[in-house]
Simulated scan of single mutants.
Amino acid sequence: MPRAGLDPAAVTAAAAALTDEIGFDRLSMGLIAERLGVKTPSLYKHVDGLADLSHRIAVLAMDEFADTLRDAIQGLAGGDALAAAAQAIRGFVLEHPGRYAAANLAQRSGDDDPLVPASGRVLASLAAVLNGYHLEPGQQIHAMRMLRSVLHGFATLEAGGGFQIDADVEVSFRWMIDFVDRGLRAIAAEKG
């Protein structure tokens, strides 16, 4: 009989919290069972194993990420939306490094995978940010990939302690966002 109060959502939430603490690459069913105070085999009553649980963490993370990003850019446009989105992404990665890693490594299992709409919501928010720059439709996907790469790179380097030079990381982050903003405005101006 499953432990009272334990269900797939509770197991996923506990595993997501644990992965933020120890790192996604160190997650195991044994550690999750220990965290929940149950024996490892009892977890299989709620999830189909570590791969299934990792995917559930990715879906949870992508949903949380989508909500965070949507809320951050609400009512903003152009450089203000870009700065808010960038801070939201950076904050999410720093606060939830394990979940973020799970979301980045997840592969969708089909069109009915809940990861698909969650990822779509993230992309919709990024597209809304870029809409403020009035880019040509063909340029938006390239701008989105650039924006994701720049923000992912900065945030994951920061989360991993990758900035060792004695300079204010916050100043570097603002400088980067200003640089991206100017670049996007310059590309939009070229079409005019």
Rank of each mutant, 00 (worst) to 15 (best):
173 F>L: 02
151 L>M: 09
178 D>K: 11
173 F>Q: 00
95 E>C: 07
107 Q>M: 10
108 R>I: 06
147 L>Q: 04
87 Q>Y: 02
99 R>Q: 09
101 A>K: 07
132 G>A: 09
155 A>V: 12
152 H>A: 13
116 V>E: 11
170 E>N: 03
94 L>M: 05
118 A>M: 03
162 G>Y: 08
163 F>S: 05
172 S>A: 15
154 F>D: 00
154 F>M: 05
148 R>M: 11
180 V>H: 03
85 A>P: 00
108 R>P: 06
131 N>Y: 09
107 Q>N: 09
104 N>G: 14
168 D>A: 05
172 S>C: 11
179 F>Q: 08
134 H>L: 11
164 Q>N: 08
157 L>T: 12
176 M>E: 01
96 H>D: 03
165 I>T: 12
94 L>W: 04
86 A>I: 07
154 F>T: 03
117 P>R: 02
99 R>K: 06
119 S>N: 11
143 A>K: 01
166 D>A: 13
157 L>D: 12
177 I>S: 01
177 I>G: 04
146 M>E: 11
176 M>T: 06
177 I>N: 00
96 H>Y: 03
96 H>K: 03
177 I>Q: 00
143 A>N: 00
142 H>W: 15
159 A>M: 09
110 G>R: 03
165 I>G: 10
85 A>R: 01
148 R>L: 12
167 A>E: 10
96 H>I: 08
167 A>K: 14
135 L>Y: 01
88 A>V: 00
120 G>T: 05
101 A>G: 02
152 H>P: 13
159 A>N: 08
131 N>Q: 08
107 Q>K: 09
119 S>V: 06
115 L>T: 01
139 Q>D: 15
109 S>L: 14
158 E>D: 14
170 E>L: 08
177 I>Y: 06
88 A>T: 04
139 Q>L: 15
153 G>N: 02
152 H>Y: 11
125 S>L: 12
122 V>C: 04
175 W>Q: 04
160 G>C: 14
156 T>N: 10
151 L>F: 15
132 G>T: 09
124 A>Q: 09
120 G>Q: 13
153 G>S: 11
172 S>F: 15
122 V>G: 03
96 H>T: 05
103 A>W: 05
176 M>G: 05
116 V>D: 08
139 Q>A: 15
175 W>S: 07
98 G>V: 10
113 D>Q: 05
152 H>I: 11
102 A>F: 03
124 A>R: 13
116 V>S: 07
144 M>C: 13
98 G>P: 01
158 E>A: 15
122 V>F: 08
107 Q>R: 12
121 R>D: 00
150 V>E: 02
